[in-house]
Write a protein that binds this DNA or RNA. Structure first.
Length: 733
DNA sequence: CCATACCGACTTTTT
DNA sequence: GTCGGTATGG
């Protein structure tokens, strides 16, 4: 019935047959056409969530909503561009006027436009993580905190704390009590740094990622004028991946939609994987409370995966402690059972993957329809080497970003100062490049810029020390030359490189050839821009992946295997998916047992497995490299041993059974192993377990630190970290 | 105050 | 492999 209604609309997607379904199912249809009032869409993996958003965007435009009044908030810029592109295929070019992007990108745009209501400069610079951390370091030394015998927490940890505090809307006191208990002595110092950090950013026109969200929220909450302008501009708002929003983002959504209530959020609590960044899938559950007459729509038919794959993914998520039931079903019957493969080590794992990729290609699956996913960036190092040896092209997503390497940061510093002459962190970087200038000298010089109208002019009169006067003057002269009107971004880059190249070779004598390829890549990106500010903002908000060692960088980018962290694979799908490094202690990482992180790890495993359409492979090495370059035996991840054997094939391990791994290794269930002695090479310990040590007596396991290392608390002796292969531990019931 | 060299600790995930 | 702290010499 819906279909007949529907077939008159121009948003029938005849070309898009990839899900075997040219039109929308009743739930999708309802989500698409419910354009008034608040709507919550719970969309399981592969249920056509993106498709629904695409159609809805087209539908809104079709019903006469001006495209520029539509706001589509997504998790990545790529996702929103893709959706808008597809909507414009359904509807027409006007869809490109739809405002789309990440919360951070939208915040940036709005703060440049309306930020003056809160007293922000229009030309603020966005700090990425390394920038923010280097400010922390500057403050640490200027506040004279790095002294005193006690080891001060690193900039990394400090930023983690500050950022979590913002994203979880939790004061750092409370945060320290929980996750960072060991740092409680530094509470006062942290408060002090935090205060100065805020002041520093304000004085120098800087905003970190978190500030973008916070200040957008403040803009809506504190400036009636800005709020009116923004909420009347965006009359129809859609938010994708709502399970990965935090409280600030939820509040932004609330404030923006408050007036017309035309708000739709889409999410899946089972795929919430960003709690480390403050995301809380309870936002989904709270949505009906914030918007009392919200319509709830569930998308439950899976169009992506074969039933064989879906059975496995369902078994993974079934064990979740807390979930909101959706019953996913697929009409794609049968299919090939997923495979679990135990490789002897990292190298054989890589070779297995490559062998299978070649088989898949022989079966007619193109390279671009295959992906290899992993928990952490470094899990793919060996595979990257082997792929290069085998001349298979790949692109790696996740991990180190291009703009985070120091030579790129060096070059960007020159450009950033042009757009924001008060950008102290860039100035600092440039000054430190000069011979005979160190942290102290740089700090002294920079005291002169925060009050200056034109810092560059001010510095021209600065009495430089004899030993570095020359270098200082040529730096300023070069910066002045960049102000010449009419220069394109590429012109600027070339001028900067004229100055920087000799320094560059001096700073990186060992590997400047490799690094200079990054600079070339940067130049190519820059060539696509005519506005320097957009280039800088874009590369900070959506940093390009470091293409550094991805097979042959000159190869056709449309024919590449994707290697990706699971986080970066969110929302994507491939015909064949490999999930590698599913070894105990690696995925889930041992530290996940410490806190409440296990559930999130399970969802991560679920996200990984649900990316597959037709073929799914799980692999793990039986031997992993520990931190001290020792090879240690390792078992299968508990996530794998939990999967009912009948749902998978496990070659190399007795037909389809997997007796190699004792069932009690299922670390998530409360039943404990009965054996008193750990088998060599395997950990059968888990947190909470009671053990007896020949000397320390009875204790309880606090954490599993590695395959053979556990941390145990003994009431009479305190906390001990022990090697299970050296210590005879008796497990008590 | 700066440059260099060495040692030890730590390395999840991302806007 | 990389950051941070430290020791040494200029």
């Amino acid at each position: 019935m819906q279909q007949s209604l529907f077939s008159d609309t121009p948003f029938r997607d005849g070309k898009n047959k990839k899900d075997g379904q040219g039109e929308l199912n009743p739930s999708q249809y309802e989500a698409v056409t419910s354009i008034k009032g608040p709507v919550l869409v719970i969309a399981g993996a592969g249920t056509g969530k993106t498709r629904t958003l695409v159609h809805r965007t087209a539908h809104l435009v079709q019903t006469g909503i001006p495209p520029e009044n539509i706001l589509l908030l997504t998790f990545t810029r790529k996702a929103s561009m893709e959706m808008i592109r597809r909507a414009s295929l359904l509807m027409d070019e006007s869809c490109h006027r739809v405002a789309g992007g990440t919360f951070h990108a939208m915040a940036n745009m709005l703060l440049r436009r309306f930020g003056h209501h809160l007293g922000f400069e229009r030309n603020f610079t966005i700090l990425d993580r390394p920038d923010a951390e280097s400010i922390i370091n500057l403050l640490k030394s200027s506040l004279d905190l790095s002294r005193t015998g006690k080891r001060f927490p690193s900039k990394r940890i400090i930023m983690d704390i500050f950022s979590k505090s913002v994203n979880k809307s939790m004061p750092i006191d409370e945060l320290l009590e929980g996750q960072y208990g060991h740092l409680i002595n530094f509470l006062d110092d942290l408060h002090l740094i935090q205060k100065h950090y805020g002041k520093f950013k304000l004085e120098h026109g800087l905003m970190d990622y978190d500030d973008l969200l916070v200040n957008w929220q403040r803009l809506l909450a504190e400036s009636p004028e800005a709020r009116e302008a923004i909420s009347s501009r965006f009359t129809h708002v859609m938010v994708d991946e709502y399970q990965d929003t935090n409280l600030i983002q939820a509040d932004i959504v609330r404030l923006i939609a408050d007036r017309l209530n035309n708000i739709m959020v889409v999410g899946d609590d089972s795929q919430s994987i960003y709690s480390f960044r403050g995301a809380d899938f309870r936002n989904i559950m709270d949505f009906p409370r914030t918007f009392p007459n919200a319509k709830l729509i569930k998308l439950e038919e899976n169009y992506r995966s074969s039933q064989a794959i879906l059975s496995v993914t369902n078994s993974i998520i079934e064990k979740a402690a807390e979930k909101y039931t959706k019953k996913l079903f697929s009409r794609i019957e049968g299919g090939v059972k997923p495979i679990i493969y135990a490789a002897s080590n990292d190298t054989t794992q890589a070779r297995y993957v490559i062998g299978k990729i070649q088989d898949l290609m022989d079966e007619g699956i193109p390279l671009t329809e295959i992906a290899v996913l992993f928990r952490s960036g470094f899990h793919s190092y060996k595979l990257e080497m082997e792929l290069t040896n085998n001349r298979i092209n790949f692109e790696k997503r996740g991990g180190m970003k291009l703009t985070e390497s120091s030579h790129i940061k060096d070059v960007l510093s020159f450009l950033r100062i042009l757009t924001n002459p008060k950008d102290n962190i860039s100035w600092n970087r440039l000054l430190l490049m000069l011979d005979k200038v160190g942290p102290k000298t740089a700090e002294k010089v920079l005291e002169n810029i925060k009050s200056a109208d034109d810092p560059l002019e001010a510095l021209l009169n600065y009495p430089a020390g004899k030993s570095w006067k020359q270098g200082f003057e040529s730096l300023l002269k070069m910066l002045l030359s960049l102000r010449e009107p009419g220069l394109t971004p590429v012109d600027l880059f070339d001028r900067v490189m004229e100055y920087y190249d000799p320094l560059f070779k001096k700073i990186f004598p060992d590997d400047y050839p490799r690094r200079s390829r990054d600079l070339e890549q940067l130049r190519v990106i820059l060539a696509g821009y005519h506005d320097l500010r957009s280039f800088i903002d874009d590369t900070t908000l959506d940093p390009p992946e470091n293409i550094g060692k991805s097979g042959d960088p000159l190869s056709n980018p449309t024919d590449r295997l994707v290697l990706s962290t699971i986080h970066s694979a969110k929302g994507l799908e491939w015909d064949a998916v490999f999930v590698i490094h599913l070894a105990e202690g690696k995925f889930p990482p041992a530290r996940a047992f410490l806190s409440d992180q296990l559930e999130e790890e399970r969802r991560l495993m679920y996200v990984a497995a649900t990316r597959a359409k037709r073929r799914l492979f799980f692999t793990y090495p039986r031997e992993v490299m520990s931190a001290d370059f020792m090879s240690v035996n390792s078992a299968m991840s508990p996530f794998l041993s939990e999967i009912p054997p009948v749902l998978v094939n496990s070659p190399g391990i007795h037909s389809s059974r997997r007796p190699a791994i004792p069932r009690e290794k299922t670390l998530f269930q409360k039943d404990k192993p009965k054996s008193a002695k750990p088998t060599p090479g395997q950990t059968s310990f888990c947190p909470g377990m009671r053990v007896r040590h020949p000397f320390f007596g009875e204790g309880s396991i606090q954490a599993v630190k590695g395959p053979k290392t556990v941390e145990i608390f003994f009431p009479r002796h305190g906390k001990k970290t022990l090697r299970t292969d050296y210590t005879k531990l008796e497990i008590l019931e």
